[in-house]
Structures are given as C-alpha cells and as structure tokens.
Amino acid sequence: MELELLTGLQKYFYSNLTILKKLQQLSPEEILSFDLKDFLNSGLKEKDADFIVSREVLREGEMELKKAEKENVLVISKYSQEFPSLLREIDYCPFVIWVKGKKDTLSKPALSIVGTRNCSSYGKLVADSLSSELSKRGLVIVSGLARGIDTIVHSSAIEQGETIAVLGSGVDMIYPSENKRIASRIEERGAIISEFPLGTKALPYHFPMRNRIISGLSFLTIVVEAGERSGALITAKWALEQGRDVLAVPGPITSEGSKGTNFLIKQGAKPVLSWEDVWEEIPSFLKKDLKEKLEEGKIELSKEEERILSLIPLESEITIDELSLSSGIPVYEIFPVLFQLELKGLIVENPGKSYQKRIR
C-alpha cells in the first residue's frame, strides 16, 4: 500500500514542489491516517486534501504501477534501499522515480556533466573528453539527454562505462525524438529515469524541475558550456542549494556560449582544464572503487589512417568533402578510414558528418 500511495502522490502533485515538500514531512502512515482537517491545517487546498482522504490517491497509484509493470519500468520509492542515496538527501526529493534500464547503476558514484544545447566545436570536444575519461575510470555520468552537450556526454559515457539520463518527460516519452536510438543504448549501459509519470510529455516548465534531479544524483556538477540564460546554470544553482560542488569549463571571453561558465568561475566555481582537475575533487571514500591510472597500449595506425588523422583538426571541425579535397582521396575511400579512427577513439563524429580529433 505504501508504494501505491507514494506513486499516486507523485503522479498527482509532481508539478507542485511546495506541496510535495509539505507532504514529505509526513510519514506514509501519517498521510494515510490524516483526515481532511489535518491536511487543511498543513496547508493543502481542499480539493488536494480530498484526493488523499478519499483514497483516490491509492487507486491512481495502483493504476500507474500496473502500467509500469506492463511497460517493464521500475517504480522506486524514496524509502526503498534501491533509491539513490544522494537524491534522497535533497529538498524537494520526489516520492518515487520511474526507471528504465539497470537499477544497479543508481547505486554507483555519479557526477553530472551539463551544458548548452547550442554548443560549439570547443564545447563538444571538451564534453566528449571529460565524459570519456571519467566514465572509463568507473564514474557514472549523469545528464539530461537534451540536444548538444548532454547528447555528447551520454554518447561518450556509454562507450566507456555507464550513464544516467534524467528526463523532463515520462521515461516512455523520449525527448528530443532524435535521441531515441541513444536512449535505447543507455537502457543497456545505464538507466533512464524521471519523476514524471508514464505518458507525460516534455513541457517547458518540466526542465528546470528535472535539473534538480540531475544535480541531486551527483556528488558534483560540471558545466561545460553555457550562455547567460542556459538551463545548465539552473542545474548549477540547484547543485549549490543542495550543498554539492560546481565546476566549470572556462571559455573565450568573446564567446556567448562561455559567458555562463566564466561567470560561475568568477563566482568561485573551480575551473576545469582536464579530467584530473575533476579527479582532485572526488571524495577519498569514493576513489577506492575507481581507477585513476589505466593501462593504455599503443594504437597501431595504417598509413592511410595516419594521413587522414593528420588532416583532422583538434579545435574545429572538418567535413568528409573537405577531407577528400585536402587529401585527394575519394570520399568512398575515406569513409572506412574514418570508421576505424572512430573505433580507435581518435576522432569524434559531430552532427552533419563533420569530424574532429579527440583530446588525449
């Protein structure tokens, strides 16, 4: 009955964080024992109080749990041992979360990497490098599955380790739709979670709420690239309110996309120049389960791979047509070379079939 209650409460009140916080001061037993007057005295409106007292909340919760079971989705309550321990500590903690994928990912050390949807080549490069280097050392990487930095962060993390995508919709309503394929891969190598019930569409006001879950799952948050009004700054604000560290990647003072991160650094956020800067901030009790030093063998390259790699820039992008023009090699011969270079982790493909070197 407890899970039905909490699921029903989350489904009905998810858009009202103030009410959720008020109800969280009560145990499930107290909520079930309260009468209408008790709820009104605690600050609830009559229609909201009546929803609980009439036991309609239990029926709603039961229906939602049946739907989740049918969709192979887990519903985990904040009182469960499977609920992420860091998330349980925050104010405005959800009563339940919906989870698709590997639930054991939720119990591993996690940090979040976030940034703008309209990222630059520089932002893509740094996001890819940080996510890759930190995930291969055993850290779970949390982000929001949005376009831009989030997508790159998840893509790099699942190549090396595990990642958690936190949605501003139900876990069955992937947004943006072009990320459905990567979402399927995340289910296999991590988890997709949400505080929003199944069938909930992504609405603008959901994303600022969602951001507190991203930071809440993480012992620290890294902002890679963010303009002055970027949603990534909301995640940073939540992290600070939750008592978590915020780190930021510095960028050119002339770049609109770095105004937010440069401001965070000015306000005291630690600047991130490499994954080692992040490693220094990891609590010692977490490091015992992580791998700082990795054995990396020499990467063998063919003459064609060496030639193409030498033409691909680090801080900007180049298209396959431009590579063909520079090298004099037909496009159809360059494709398999690029594929091998990607497999070897030496280059990254950006949207629009453009390529750039990875930071190593």
Rank of each mutant, 00 (worst) to 15 (best):
G8R: 07
F13Q: 01
L20H: 00
N41Q: 14
K45T: 14
K45G: 15
R55A: 13
G61Q: 06
K66R: 13
L74S: 13
L74M: 12
V75W: 02
R88Q: 09
E89C: 08
Y92W: 11
P94H: 05
V99A: 02
G101K: 06
S112K: 03
S112L: 06
V126E: 02
S129P: 00
E133W: 08
L134Q: 04
S135M: 08
L139R: 02
L139G: 02
R147I: 04
G148T: 08
G148S: 09
D150G: 10
D150C: 11
I158G: 03
E159C: 12
G170T: 07
Y175K: 00
K180Q: 14
S184Y: 01
I186R: 01
L203N: 10
P204Y: 05
Y205K: 12
R210L: 13
R210S: 07
F219R: 02
S230P: 09
S230W: 10
R244C: 05
V246T: 09
L247K: 03
L247M: 15
A248D: 06
I253F: 11
G260D: 04
L264R: 04
K270C: 02
L273M: 13
D277S: 09
E280M: 12
E281F: 00
L286D: 06
D289W: 13
L290I: 07
E292T: 00
L294M: 12
I299Q: 00
S316P: 02
T319R: 00
L325A: 12
F335W: 10
P351I: 08
G352F: 12
